[in-house]
Design a protein around this nucleic acid. Structure first.
Lengths: 213, 213
DNA sequence: CTGCATCCGTTCAGATACTG
DNA sequence: CAGTATCTGAACGGATGCAG
Protein backbone atom coordinates (compact mmCIF):
# COMPACT_ATOMS: atom_id res chain seq x y z
CA UNK A 1 0.00 0.00 0.00
CA UNK A 2 1.35 3.37 -0.95
CA UNK A 3 2.05 5.63 1.99
CA UNK A 4 0.02 8.44 0.47
CA UNK A 5 -2.98 6.23 -0.11
CA UNK A 6 -6.28 7.13 1.49
CA UNK A 7 -6.95 3.44 2.05
CA UNK A 8 -10.65 3.64 1.28
CA UNK A 9 -12.70 1.93 -1.38
CA UNK A 10 -14.77 4.91 -2.41
CA UNK A 11 -15.34 6.95 -5.54
CA UNK A 12 -14.30 10.20 -3.95
CA UNK A 13 -11.02 8.90 -2.57
CA UNK A 14 -10.32 7.26 -5.91
CA UNK A 15 -10.98 10.53 -7.72
CA UNK A 16 -8.73 12.40 -5.32
CA UNK A 17 -5.98 9.88 -5.86
CA UNK A 18 -6.22 10.44 -9.62
CA UNK A 19 -6.65 14.22 -9.81
CA UNK A 20 -6.33 15.41 -6.23
CA UNK A 21 -2.69 16.41 -6.35
CA UNK A 22 -1.76 20.04 -6.45
CA UNK A 23 -2.04 21.54 -9.98
CA UNK A 24 -3.70 18.45 -11.46
CA UNK A 25 -7.19 19.85 -11.82
CA UNK A 26 -5.79 23.09 -13.24
CA UNK A 27 -4.08 21.11 -15.98
CA UNK A 28 -7.39 19.41 -16.63
CA UNK A 29 -9.12 22.80 -16.68
CA UNK A 30 -6.76 24.08 -19.35
CA UNK A 31 -7.03 20.90 -21.41
CA UNK A 32 -10.82 21.15 -21.32
CA UNK A 33 -10.39 24.14 -23.61
CA UNK A 34 -8.46 22.04 -26.11
CA UNK A 35 -5.23 20.10 -26.66
CA UNK A 36 -2.14 21.98 -25.56
CA UNK A 37 1.59 21.67 -25.91
CA UNK A 38 3.90 21.46 -22.94
CA UNK A 39 4.97 25.05 -23.31
CA UNK A 40 1.40 26.28 -23.65
CA UNK A 41 0.44 24.51 -20.45
CA UNK A 42 3.44 26.02 -18.70
CA UNK A 43 2.45 29.47 -19.96
CA UNK A 44 -1.11 29.01 -18.71
CA UNK A 45 0.14 28.03 -15.26
CA UNK A 46 2.88 30.60 -14.70
CA UNK A 47 3.61 29.53 -11.14
CA UNK A 48 4.05 25.82 -11.74
CA UNK A 49 7.65 24.58 -11.66
CA UNK A 50 8.60 22.68 -14.77
CA UNK A 51 9.45 19.50 -12.89
CA UNK A 52 6.05 19.50 -11.24
CA UNK A 53 4.33 20.01 -14.57
CA UNK A 54 6.26 17.12 -16.04
CA UNK A 55 5.43 14.93 -13.04
CA UNK A 56 1.73 15.76 -13.18
CA UNK A 57 1.52 15.08 -16.89
CA UNK A 58 3.05 11.68 -16.29
CA UNK A 59 0.69 10.88 -13.42
CA UNK A 60 -2.36 12.02 -15.34
CA UNK A 61 -1.34 9.81 -18.23
CA UNK A 62 -0.98 6.80 -15.98
CA UNK A 63 -4.36 7.61 -14.48
CA UNK A 64 -5.89 7.54 -17.96
CA UNK A 65 -7.02 11.15 -17.73
CA UNK A 66 -4.81 12.60 -20.46
CA UNK A 67 -2.81 11.28 -23.37
CA UNK A 68 0.24 12.41 -25.33
CA UNK A 69 -0.63 12.80 -28.96
CA UNK A 70 1.90 13.51 -31.70
CA UNK A 71 0.52 16.21 -33.98
CA UNK A 72 2.66 16.76 -37.04
CA UNK A 73 6.11 16.80 -35.43
CA UNK A 74 5.02 18.33 -32.12
CA UNK A 75 3.52 16.67 -29.09
CA UNK A 76 0.26 17.86 -27.61
CA UNK A 77 -1.47 16.73 -24.49
CA UNK A 78 -5.19 16.09 -24.65
CA UNK A 79 -7.87 14.69 -22.42
CA UNK A 80 -8.98 11.12 -22.89
CA UNK A 81 -12.75 10.53 -23.04
CA UNK A 82 -12.58 9.64 -19.36
CA UNK A 83 -10.71 12.84 -18.62
CA UNK A 84 -13.30 14.87 -20.48
CA UNK A 85 -15.92 13.48 -18.11
CA UNK A 86 -14.34 15.71 -15.47
CA UNK A 87 -15.94 18.74 -17.08
CA UNK A 88 -19.00 18.79 -14.78
CA UNK A 89 -16.70 18.47 -11.78
CA UNK A 90 -14.50 21.35 -12.92
CA UNK A 91 -17.49 23.55 -13.74
CA UNK A 92 -19.17 22.83 -10.41
CA UNK A 93 -15.97 23.54 -8.55
CA UNK A 94 -15.49 26.74 -10.48
CA UNK A 95 -18.99 27.95 -9.76
CA UNK A 96 -18.51 27.22 -6.09
CA UNK A 97 -15.14 28.91 -5.84
CA UNK A 98 -16.39 31.89 -7.83
CA UNK A 99 -18.60 32.85 -4.92
CA UNK A 100 -15.58 33.19 -2.67
CA UNK A 101 -13.62 35.43 -5.03
CA UNK A 102 -13.12 38.78 -3.42
CA UNK A 103 -11.58 41.77 -5.10
CA UNK A 104 -8.77 40.73 -7.42
CA UNK A 105 -5.36 41.15 -5.86
CA UNK A 106 -2.63 42.82 -7.85
CA UNK A 107 -0.66 39.68 -8.54
CA UNK A 108 -3.69 37.69 -9.63
CA UNK A 109 -4.05 37.14 -13.33
CA UNK A 110 -6.66 35.66 -15.62
CA UNK A 111 -5.31 33.27 -18.21
CA UNK A 112 -7.14 32.69 -21.48
CA UNK A 113 -8.02 29.13 -20.46
CA UNK A 114 -9.35 30.23 -17.08
CA UNK A 115 -11.41 32.94 -18.74
CA UNK A 116 -12.76 30.49 -21.28
CA UNK A 117 -13.89 28.04 -18.60
CA UNK A 118 -15.39 30.84 -16.54
CA UNK A 119 -17.38 32.00 -19.54
CA UNK A 120 -18.57 28.45 -20.15
CA UNK A 121 -19.67 28.19 -16.55
CA UNK A 122 -21.38 31.56 -16.55
CA UNK A 123 -23.08 31.21 -19.92
CA UNK A 124 -26.85 31.41 -19.72
CA UNK A 125 -28.22 29.79 -22.86
CA UNK A 126 -31.82 30.53 -21.89
CA UNK A 127 -31.00 34.23 -21.80
CA UNK A 128 -28.85 34.18 -24.93
CA UNK A 129 -31.55 32.38 -26.89
CA UNK A 130 -33.71 35.51 -26.76
CA UNK A 131 -30.93 37.84 -27.86
CA UNK A 132 -29.62 38.53 -31.36
CA UNK A 133 -26.35 36.75 -32.24
CA UNK A 134 -23.50 38.77 -30.83
CA UNK A 135 -19.74 38.51 -30.96
CA UNK A 136 -17.31 39.97 -28.48
CA UNK A 137 -13.56 40.33 -28.32
CA UNK A 138 -12.26 40.39 -24.78
CA UNK A 139 -8.70 41.49 -24.22
CA UNK A 140 -7.63 40.53 -20.76
CA UNK A 141 -4.01 40.61 -19.76
CA UNK A 142 -2.74 41.02 -23.29
CA UNK A 143 -4.52 37.94 -24.59
CA UNK A 144 -7.42 38.18 -26.95
CA UNK A 145 -10.47 35.98 -26.79
CA UNK A 146 -13.21 35.93 -29.39
CA UNK A 147 -16.57 35.10 -27.88
CA UNK A 148 -19.37 34.18 -30.21
CA UNK A 149 -22.89 33.88 -28.92
CA UNK A 150 -25.46 32.62 -31.35
CA UNK A 151 -28.73 31.62 -29.77
CA UNK A 152 -28.03 29.04 -27.13
CA UNK A 153 -24.61 28.28 -28.59
CA UNK A 154 -21.36 29.63 -27.18
CA UNK A 155 -17.98 29.60 -28.86
CA UNK A 156 -14.78 30.89 -27.35
CA UNK A 157 -11.54 30.96 -29.29
CA UNK A 158 -8.20 32.65 -28.97
CA UNK A 159 -7.10 35.21 -31.49
CA UNK A 160 -8.77 38.15 -33.09
CA UNK A 161 -11.65 38.72 -35.48
CA UNK A 162 -14.18 41.40 -36.39
CA UNK A 163 -16.76 41.54 -33.61
CA UNK A 164 -19.70 43.62 -32.48
CA UNK A 165 -17.99 44.75 -29.32
CA UNK A 166 -14.30 44.72 -28.48
CA UNK A 167 -13.14 45.63 -25.00
CA UNK A 168 -10.10 45.44 -22.81
CA UNK A 169 -10.21 44.76 -19.09
CA UNK A 170 -8.26 43.29 -16.22
CA UNK A 171 -9.33 40.60 -13.80
CA UNK A 172 -12.10 42.92 -12.72
CA UNK A 173 -13.99 41.62 -15.74
CA UNK A 174 -15.25 38.83 -13.48
CA UNK A 175 -16.93 41.38 -11.23
CA UNK A 176 -19.03 42.23 -14.24
CA UNK A 177 -20.07 38.61 -14.53
CA UNK A 178 -20.92 38.45 -10.85
CA UNK A 179 -23.05 41.55 -11.17
CA UNK A 180 -21.04 43.41 -8.55
CA UNK A 181 -19.87 45.88 -11.15
CA UNK A 182 -22.47 47.51 -13.38
CA UNK A 183 -21.53 47.74 -17.08
CA UNK A 184 -22.02 51.52 -17.25
CA UNK A 185 -19.92 51.98 -14.14
CA UNK A 186 -17.23 49.71 -15.51
CA UNK A 187 -16.92 51.89 -18.59
CA UNK A 188 -17.25 55.15 -16.68
CA UNK A 189 -14.46 54.27 -14.26
CA UNK A 190 -12.25 52.90 -17.01
CA UNK A 191 -12.26 49.41 -15.53
CA UNK A 192 -13.43 48.22 -18.92
CA UNK A 193 -12.18 50.06 -21.98
CA UNK A 194 -14.29 49.87 -25.12
CA UNK A 195 -11.99 49.39 -28.11
CA UNK A 196 -14.60 49.04 -30.77
CA UNK A 197 -18.37 48.94 -31.12
CA UNK A 198 -21.23 50.22 -29.02
CA UNK A 199 -20.47 50.25 -25.33
CA UNK A 200 -24.02 49.46 -24.38
CA UNK A 201 -23.46 45.96 -25.74
CA UNK A 202 -21.60 45.38 -22.50
CA UNK A 203 -25.03 45.19 -20.89
CA UNK A 204 -25.88 42.33 -23.16
CA UNK A 205 -22.58 40.69 -22.30
CA UNK A 206 -23.32 40.96 -18.59
CA UNK A 207 -26.76 39.45 -18.96
CA UNK A 208 -25.50 36.66 -21.20
CA UNK A 209 -22.82 35.67 -18.72
CA UNK A 210 -23.76 35.61 -15.09
CA UNK A 211 -22.55 33.68 -12.09
CA UNK A 212 -23.68 34.16 -8.51
CA UNK A 213 -21.24 35.70 -6.10
CA UNK B 1 1.50 36.74 -1.89
CA UNK B 2 1.66 33.33 -0.32
CA UNK B 3 4.22 31.05 -1.90
CA UNK B 4 1.67 28.28 -2.33
CA UNK B 5 -0.79 30.56 -4.06
CA UNK B 6 -1.91 29.73 -7.57
CA UNK B 7 -1.84 33.41 -8.40
CA UNK B 8 -4.92 33.34 -10.61
CA UNK B 9 -8.21 35.14 -10.30
CA UNK B 10 -10.46 32.23 -11.15
CA UNK B 11 -13.20 30.27 -9.46
CA UNK B 12 -11.42 26.96 -9.82
CA UNK B 13 -8.15 28.14 -8.33
CA UNK B 14 -10.09 29.81 -5.54
CA UNK B 15 -11.96 26.59 -4.84
CA UNK B 16 -8.73 24.63 -4.82
CA UNK B 17 -7.20 27.05 -2.40
CA UNK B 18 -10.15 26.56 -0.05
CA UNK B 19 -10.69 22.81 -0.27
CA UNK B 20 -7.88 21.55 -2.50
CA UNK B 21 -5.54 20.43 0.26
CA UNK B 22 -5.10 16.78 0.93
CA UNK B 23 -7.93 15.34 3.11
CA UNK B 24 -10.05 18.51 2.94
CA UNK B 25 -12.72 17.21 0.61
CA UNK B 26 -12.91 13.94 2.55
CA UNK B 27 -13.70 15.89 5.69
CA UNK B 28 -16.38 17.70 3.71
CA UNK B 29 -17.68 14.37 2.43
CA UNK B 30 -18.09 13.07 5.97
CA UNK B 31 -19.70 16.26 7.20
CA UNK B 32 -22.20 16.15 4.34
CA UNK B 33 -23.69 13.16 6.16
CA UNK B 34 -24.16 15.23 9.28
CA UNK B 35 -22.34 17.10 12.05
CA UNK B 36 -19.52 15.11 13.58
CA UNK B 37 -17.25 15.32 16.58
CA UNK B 38 -13.49 15.39 16.27
CA UNK B 39 -13.16 11.77 17.28
CA UNK B 40 -15.84 10.67 14.85
CA UNK B 41 -14.06 12.42 12.00
CA UNK B 42 -10.79 10.79 13.02
CA UNK B 43 -12.50 7.40 13.09
CA UNK B 44 -13.95 7.94 9.63
CA UNK B 45 -10.52 8.81 8.21
CA UNK B 46 -8.32 6.16 9.81
CA UNK B 47 -5.19 7.18 7.96
CA UNK B 48 -5.23 10.89 8.74
CA UNK B 49 -2.74 11.99 11.38
CA UNK B 50 -4.34 13.92 14.20
CA UNK B 51 -2.26 17.04 13.60
CA UNK B 52 -3.34 17.12 9.98
CA UNK B 53 -6.97 16.72 10.94
CA UNK B 54 -6.64 19.58 13.39
CA UNK B 55 -4.92 21.74 10.78
CA UNK B 56 -7.55 21.02 8.13
CA UNK B 57 -10.40 21.76 10.49
CA UNK B 58 -8.82 25.09 11.28
CA UNK B 59 -8.28 25.94 7.61
CA UNK B 60 -11.79 24.91 6.64
CA UNK B 61 -13.17 27.13 9.38
CA UNK B 62 -11.16 30.10 8.17
CA UNK B 63 -12.38 29.38 4.66
CA UNK B 64 -15.98 29.56 5.88
CA UNK B 65 -16.68 25.97 4.86
CA UNK B 66 -17.23 24.48 8.29
CA UNK B 67 -18.01 25.80 11.75
CA UNK B 68 -17.44 24.60 15.30
CA UNK B 69 -20.73 24.29 17.07
CA UNK B 70 -21.13 23.57 20.77
CA UNK B 71 -23.83 20.94 21.25
CA UNK B 72 -24.71 20.39 24.87
CA UNK B 73 -21.24 20.25 26.39
CA UNK B 74 -19.51 18.71 23.35
CA UNK B 75 -18.21 20.37 20.22
CA UNK B 76 -19.27 19.21 16.80
CA UNK B 77 -18.10 20.33 13.40
CA UNK B 78 -20.70 21.08 10.80
CA UNK B 79 -20.82 22.53 7.33
CA UNK B 80 -21.81 26.14 6.89
CA UNK B 81 -24.44 26.86 4.23
CA UNK B 82 -21.58 27.68 1.87
CA UNK B 83 -19.89 24.40 2.70
CA UNK B 84 -23.07 22.50 2.03
CA UNK B 85 -23.03 23.93 -1.49
CA UNK B 86 -20.11 21.62 -2.13
CA UNK B 87 -22.47 18.66 -2.27
CA UNK B 88 -22.83 18.65 -6.07
CA UNK B 89 -19.06 18.86 -6.40
CA UNK B 90 -18.50 15.94 -4.06
CA UNK B 91 -21.19 13.85 -5.71
CA UNK B 92 -19.86 14.56 -9.21
CA UNK B 93 -16.34 13.74 -8.12
CA UNK B 94 -17.53 10.55 -6.48
CA UNK B 95 -19.42 9.45 -9.57
CA UNK B 96 -16.36 10.11 -11.70
CA UNK B 97 -13.95 8.30 -9.40
CA UNK B 98 -16.35 5.40 -9.02
CA UNK B 99 -15.71 4.45 -12.62
CA UNK B 100 -12.03 4.01 -11.93
CA UNK B 101 -12.50 1.74 -8.93
CA UNK B 102 -11.06 -1.66 -9.67
CA UNK B 103 -11.35 -4.65 -7.46
CA UNK B 104 -11.11 -3.66 -3.81
CA UNK B 105 -7.68 -4.22 -2.34
CA UNK B 106 -7.33 -5.93 1.00
CA UNK B 107 -6.41 -2.84 2.94
CA UNK B 108 -9.22 -0.73 1.47
CA UNK B 109 -12.17 -0.14 3.72
CA UNK B 110 -15.59 1.44 3.37
CA UNK B 111 -16.52 3.81 6.14
CA UNK B 112 -20.15 4.47 7.01
CA UNK B 113 -19.90 8.04 5.73
CA UNK B 114 -18.34 6.96 2.44
CA UNK B 115 -21.02 4.31 2.01
CA UNK B 116 -23.74 6.84 2.77
CA UNK B 117 -22.47 9.29 0.19
CA UNK B 118 -22.05 6.51 -2.37
CA UNK B 119 -25.64 5.44 -1.81
CA UNK B 120 -26.80 9.03 -2.21
CA UNK B 121 -24.89 9.29 -5.46
CA UNK B 122 -26.15 5.96 -6.76
CA UNK B 123 -29.77 6.40 -5.72
CA UNK B 124 -32.21 6.29 -8.62
CA UNK B 125 -35.39 7.98 -7.46
CA UNK B 126 -37.14 7.33 -10.76
CA UNK B 127 -36.62 3.59 -10.28
CA UNK B 128 -37.45 3.63 -6.58
CA UNK B 129 -40.67 5.50 -7.20
CA UNK B 130 -42.12 2.45 -8.92
CA UNK B 131 -41.09 0.04 -6.16
CA UNK B 132 -42.79 -0.65 -2.84
CA UNK B 133 -41.18 1.02 0.18
CA UNK B 134 -38.25 -1.09 1.29
CA UNK B 135 -35.79 -0.92 4.14
CA UNK B 136 -32.35 -2.48 4.23
CA UNK B 137 -29.71 -2.94 6.87
CA UNK B 138 -26.21 -3.07 5.41
CA UNK B 139 -23.42 -4.25 7.63
CA UNK B 140 -20.12 -3.35 6.07
CA UNK B 141 -16.93 -3.54 8.06
CA UNK B 142 -18.67 -3.95 11.40
CA UNK B 143 -20.77 -0.82 11.00
CA UNK B 144 -24.48 -0.96 10.48
CA UNK B 145 -26.38 1.33 8.14
CA UNK B 146 -30.14 1.46 7.91
CA UNK B 147 -31.29 2.38 4.43
CA UNK B 148 -34.88 3.40 3.96
CA UNK B 149 -36.32 3.78 0.51
CA UNK B 150 -39.82 5.14 0.28
CA UNK B 151 -40.86 6.21 -3.16
CA UNK B 152 -38.37 8.76 -4.41
CA UNK B 153 -37.11 9.42 -0.89
CA UNK B 154 -33.89 7.98 0.51
CA UNK B 155 -32.85 7.92 4.14
CA UNK B 156 -29.58 6.53 5.43
CA UNK B 157 -28.82 6.39 9.14
CA UNK B 158 -26.36 4.61 11.34
CA UNK B 159 -27.54 2.04 13.81
CA UNK B 160 -29.91 -0.86 13.64
CA UNK B 161 -33.62 -1.31 13.14
CA UNK B 162 -36.07 -3.91 11.86
CA UNK B 163 -35.80 -4.02 8.10
CA UNK B 164 -36.99 -6.02 5.12
CA UNK B 165 -33.53 -7.23 4.23
CA UNK B 166 -30.42 -7.30 6.37
CA UNK B 167 -27.12 -8.28 4.85
CA UNK B 168 -23.43 -8.18 5.58
CA UNK B 169 -20.75 -7.53 2.99
CA UNK B 170 -17.28 -6.15 2.49
CA UNK B 171 -16.16 -3.45 0.10
CA UNK B 172 -17.31 -5.69 -2.72
CA UNK B 173 -20.78 -4.30 -2.02
CA UNK B 174 -19.90 -1.52 -4.44
CA UNK B 175 -19.46 -4.03 -7.25
CA UNK B 176 -23.11 -4.81 -6.74
CA UNK B 177 -23.95 -1.16 -7.26
CA UNK B 178 -21.81 -1.01 -10.38
CA UNK B 179 -23.57 -4.04 -11.78
CA UNK B 180 -20.34 -5.98 -12.10
CA UNK B 181 -21.51 -8.45 -9.51
CA UNK B 182 -24.93 -9.98 -9.92
CA UNK B 183 -27.02 -10.22 -6.73
CA UNK B 184 -27.56 -13.97 -7.01
CA UNK B 185 -23.88 -14.53 -7.59
CA UNK B 186 -23.00 -12.31 -4.65
CA UNK B 187 -25.11 -14.49 -2.36
CA UNK B 188 -24.01 -17.74 -3.96
CA UNK B 189 -20.32 -16.97 -3.53
CA UNK B 190 -20.79 -15.64 -0.02
CA UNK B 191 -19.64 -12.15 -1.00
CA UNK B 192 -22.89 -10.89 0.47
CA UNK B 193 -24.34 -12.74 3.44
CA UNK B 194 -28.07 -12.47 4.02
CA UNK B 195 -28.68 -12.04 7.73
CA UNK B 196 -32.41 -11.61 7.65
CA UNK B 197 -35.20 -11.38 5.13
CA UNK B 198 -35.65 -12.61 1.59
CA UNK B 199 -32.42 -12.69 -0.35
CA UNK B 200 -34.12 -11.82 -3.60
CA UNK B 201 -34.65 -8.31 -2.23
CA UNK B 202 -30.99 -7.81 -3.06
CA UNK B 203 -32.14 -7.54 -6.67
CA UNK B 204 -34.30 -4.63 -5.71
CA UNK B 205 -31.40 -3.07 -3.86
CA UNK B 206 -29.18 -3.37 -6.92
CA UNK B 207 -31.76 -1.76 -9.18
CA UNK B 208 -32.47 1.03 -6.69
CA UNK B 209 -28.81 1.92 -6.39
CA UNK B 210 -26.76 1.99 -9.55
CA UNK B 211 -23.70 3.84 -10.69
CA UNK B 212 -21.83 3.35 -13.94
CA UNK B 213 -18.45 1.69 -13.82
C1' DC C 1 13.65 26.54 -29.10
C1' DT C 2 10.79 22.99 -26.95
C1' DG C 3 10.45 19.43 -23.62
C1' DC C 4 11.81 17.90 -20.09
C1' DA C 5 15.65 16.22 -16.02
C1' DT C 6 18.59 17.40 -12.12
C1' DC C 7 19.88 19.74 -8.05
C1' DC C 8 18.88 21.79 -3.72
C1' DG C 9 16.64 24.59 -0.17
C1' DT C 10 12.07 25.04 1.87
C1' DT C 11 7.71 23.63 3.16
C1' DC C 12 4.46 20.35 4.17
C1' DA C 13 2.66 15.85 5.43
C1' DG C 14 3.00 11.70 8.39
C1' DA C 15 4.03 9.11 12.68
C1' DT C 16 4.44 9.21 17.44
C1' DA C 17 4.28 11.11 21.84
C1' DC C 18 2.26 14.04 24.89
C1' DT C 19 -1.09 17.42 27.42
C1' DG C 20 -5.40 20.05 29.21
C1' DC D 1 -11.75 12.99 24.41
C1' DA D 2 -9.87 16.68 21.82
C1' DG D 3 -6.54 18.23 20.40
C1' DT D 4 -0.94 20.11 20.61
C1' DA D 5 4.31 19.30 20.20
C1' DT D 6 7.99 17.45 18.00
C1' DC D 7 10.59 15.08 14.79
C1' DT D 8 11.50 12.87 10.12
C1' DG D 9 10.93 12.08 5.45
C1' DA D 10 8.56 13.24 1.32
C1' DA D 11 6.77 16.62 -1.79
C1' DC D 12 6.94 21.11 -3.53
C1' DG D 13 9.25 25.32 -5.50
C1' DG D 14 12.83 27.73 -7.98
C1' DA D 15 16.91 27.72 -10.63
C1' DT D 16 19.56 25.64 -13.84
C1' DG D 17 21.19 22.18 -17.23
C1' DC D 18 20.78 19.53 -21.33
C1' DA D 19 19.25 16.69 -25.20
C1' DG D 20 16.46 16.35 -29.53
Amino acid sequence: MAARDYGQYCGITQALELVGERWSLLIVRDLLVGPRRYGELAAGLPRIPSNILAARLKELQEAGVIRRAPRSRVIVYELTPYGRELEPVVLALGAWGFKALGEPRDEQIITPAAMTMTLRTAFRPEVAADLPPTSYAAHVGGDGLVIQVDGATLGVTRGDAPVDLAFAAGPVILRLISGELAPERAIATGAVEVLHGRGDLLDRFASTFHLAA
